[in-house]
Design a protein around this nucleic acid. Structure first.
Lengths: 356, 356
DNA sequence: TTGTACGCGTTATCAA
DNA sequence: TTGATAACGCGTACAA
C-alpha cells in the first residue's frame, strides 16, 4: 500500500500548523474560512483519507460495534443483522461480524478479540453450547455496553431483546386446543437450550391450563433439524394406532418439515389424520404440500431494537438493563386443519426476492 | 467503561520496563522465562486486555478486512459471508460488514469508511446501480488489496471471483433444446447489470448455436423479483395461442416463481403446456408444485475463494489480479419436463436446517 | 484565529 | 536479556 497522506503533509503544503488542518477538516467553528478552503483543496488534491485508528486512540472511541452470531446460515440471523445494520448505519457505527458457529470456545475468543479491538459495544446471541456466564459477567462488570439478542443469558443484569418463545408456543398450542384437538404430541428441541426450554414450557402450560393429559410417550426429543423431526415422528407413528396423537406441535419448522415427511411416508394425510404446527415461519413453510401453520418471528425488529438499545447504552442515554420482547404472530395455514384456503397462491408477489 | 489496564501499569507492578512487558506478552524469544511468568501472572490478575488500536497505529496493520454486500436478505450472500468468515477466522482476520442496499452512494461511503478504518483489504460485490468505477480505480491504483466477488467491475485490473453466468445460462438453455424445445422465451433481468447481461448473452448463444429463432416478443424484461416474473409471463400468455412459447428460461428463480404462478393462473400446466427453468437454486425451488429445474451456485465456495485471494494479496503471496470462476451445477427437476421423479421427497433430510 | 506541548498505548530501534 | 527513546497520526488543553 502506498504511503498515506497525513495531516502533517497537508500542513506543510498549506503552510499552517497540523492543528489548523485538523480543525479545518473536522469543520470546527474556530477556523478562518479562507484557511479552511485552502486546506480542503490541498487535502483533496493529495487524496487525504482520515486515519480513524489514530483518532480512536486519542478519543477512546471506535464507532465500531461487535456482533456475535451463532449461525449465519439460519435465515433468521441475516434478517437480524439487516436490522442492526440499518440502525448502525444511521448512527455512523460500523459492525464487526463474528461467527461463533454454535461453539462456546469460538464465542469466547470472538468476545476477547472484540474487546482488544476496543469496540464501543457488543451484541451477543449465545452459542448453543455455552454453559458458563463468567465472561459475560466480566464484560458487564467492567461496564462494557452489552446487549443480548434472541438467545439471552438471563439474570446477569444484561439487556435482552427476544421474542417470547414460551408465550408463543403456548399460543399456537392453544390454537390447536381451541379447534378441538386433545391428543397432542410435542417434538421438543434440546431442553438445555433456552429456546428449547421456553417453548416446551409454553406447550406444557397450554396443556395444563386446559386440563389435557401430557403423555410421556408423546414428548419426543427431535432437535432443531429435519432429520430429528423425521425420526421423532416415526417413533410416534410406531405406537399402536389408538395410542397415537391426533396433532403435533414441533419446536421449530425444520423439525416439523421432517415430521411431515414421516407422516406422508406412513401414507397418512395432513391434517385429516395428523394435524401439525411448527415455529419460526421458515420460508418453506407456506410451500409445503400442506402449508404449515406456524409462529412468525420478526427478526428484523429484533435486530433494530437490540441495536437501538446498544447505542443508547453506548451514548449514555440509557444505563439500566431491560427485557425487551418482540411480539410474534400466529400464521394460520392449512396444516392445523383449522382453515381451508381455496384460492391458494403459492407465491406471494408482494414478497421480497430472496435470491439473486 | 472502567479505565483499562495498560502495559505501563503492568510494568510498574512487576518492576520492569514497558518493553519487557510487551515482549513477554507477545511471546518474543528474547525474554527471561521467570520474567515472562511474573508478567503474565500480573497481567491476568489485573485483567489486562491488549489494545489492538494502539498496536495497529504503530504496525500499520489492523487484521481487519471490509466486506461490502449489496443485499443481505438474498440467501446467496449470507452463504458467501460464511465462506469468507471461515477463511478469515483461520487467518485471524476480522471482518467489517458494510451493507450498500444496492445503492451506489452508500457503497461509496462504505468504501471511504473502510479506508478510514485502515482495513487491510476489501471484498466488494457491486451494487446494482453503480455506473462509475472511479473509486475502484483509485483503490487499486493506491495498491489497496481489493477482490470483487460475484458482481465484478471488469477490466480495471482487479481480481474477480464469480460463477460463470453466461456459460451456465447457455447450459440450461441447451438442456431445454436437447429435450426438443424450440420455441423458447426468455425472462430477462436488467441488461445493464452484469449478471443480467451475461445470462441473457448465454441464452442467446445457445439459441444461435442451435439455429433457433429468437423472437423479439419472446424476450421480456422481468427484473429479478417474483412480481416482474408474473407480469412478464402474463404478457407472453396474452399472445395468440400459436404465438406462445413452449418453454421459458428465467433470469433467476424468483422471476421463475412469479412466472409459474402466472401459468397456473391461466389454467395451464407445467411442464405439459409450458416448461420453465430458473437460475440460482433458491431454497423454494424444489418445493414448487412442480419442482423447478435450475442452476445451483456454490455461494460458500465463492466466499472462500475470494477470501483466500484477498489474504494472498494482503500478505504479498500474490500480486497479480485473477479471474476465478466457480463451477455451477445444473439441477434437473420436473419443471423442464425432462425427468419424472416418482419417489419424490419434498424434504431433504440431509439438508442443513435453515431456521432456528 | 492559530500554534505549541503533550498524551493516547503500543512497537521498533538501538544501546546497555 | 533489558531498557530508554522515538514514533505511529491524531485530538485536547492551553497559550499566544
Amino acid at each position: 500500500m502506498a504511503t498515506r497522506v497525513t495531516l502533517k503533509q497537508i500542513a506543510e503544503e498549506v503552510g499552517v500548523s497540523v492543528m489548523t488542518v485538523s480543525r479545518a477538516l473536522n469543520n470546527r467553528s474556530n477556523v478562518d474560512e479562507n484557511t479552511r478552503e485552502k486546506v480542503v483543496k490541498v487535502a483533496n488534491r493529495l487524496g487525504y483519507r482520515p486515519n480513524y485508528i489514530a483518532k480512536s486512540l486519542v478519543t477512546n472511541k471506535t464507532y465500531t460495534i461487535g456482533v456475535v452470531v451463532p449461525e449465519i446460515s439460519h435465515s433468521f440471523f441475516p434478517e437480524i443483522i439487516r436490522g442492526i445494520e440499518e440502525i448502525m448505519q444511521k448512527k455512523n457505527y460500523q459492525l464487526i461480524l463474528m461467527h461463533s458457529e454454535e461453539n462456546e470456545r469460538r464465542e469466547k475468543e470472538a468476545i476477547d478479540t472484540l474487546e482488544a479491538k476496543r469496540v464501543d459495544g457488543i451484541l451477543i446471541s449465545m452459542a448453543e453450547t455455552v454453559n458458563s456466564f463468567e465472561q459475560y459477567r466480566r464484560l458487564i462488570k467492567s461496564e462494557h455496553p452489552v446487549v443480548f439478542y434472541d438467545r439471552c443469558a438471563r439474570d446477569i443484569g444484561a439487556t435482552c431483546v427476544s421474542v417470547n418463545d414460551e408465550e408463543s408456543q403456548k399460543m399456537i398450542t392453544q390454537h390447536l386446543i381451541d379447534h378441538g384437538y386433545q391428543k397432542i404430541a410435542y417434538l421438543s428441541g434440546p431442553i438445555d437450550v433456552a429456546i428449547g426450554k421456553d417453548r416446551y414450557s409454553g406447550f406444557l402450560k397450554a396443556m395444563h391450563e386446559n386440563g389435557l393429559e401430557v403423555r410421556d410417550e408423546w414428548i419426543v426429543q427431535s432437535g432443531f433439524q429435519e432429520t430429528g423431526g423425521y425420526e421423532a415422528m416415526s417413533k410416534l407413528l410406531s405406537l399402536p394406532k389408538e395410542m397415537r396423537p391426533r396433532a403435533v406441535a414441533a419446536v421449530n419448522d425444520p423439525a416439523a418439515f421432517g415430521a411431515m415427511q414421516a407422516i406422508y411416508d406412513h401414507n397418512l394425510r395432513i391434517p385429516e389424520d395428523v394435524a401439525i404446527v411448527g415455529f419460526s415461519d421458515d420460508i418453506r413453510a407456506k410451500l409445503m404440500p400442506c402449508p404449515l401453520t406456524t409462529i412468525h418471528q420478526p427478526a428484523y425488529e429484533v435486530g433494530k431494537k437490540a441495536a437501538k438499545k446498544l447505542i443508547d447504552l453506548i451514548e449514555g442515554r440509557s444505563t439500566e438493563p431491560e427485557d425487551i420482547e418482540i411480539k410474534t404472530e400466529l400464521i394460520i395455514r392449512e396444516s392445523c386443519g383449522c382453515k381451508q384456503n381455496f384460492n391458494k397462491k403459492f407465491i406471494d408477489l408482494k414478497e421480497k426476492s430472496l435470491s439473486k
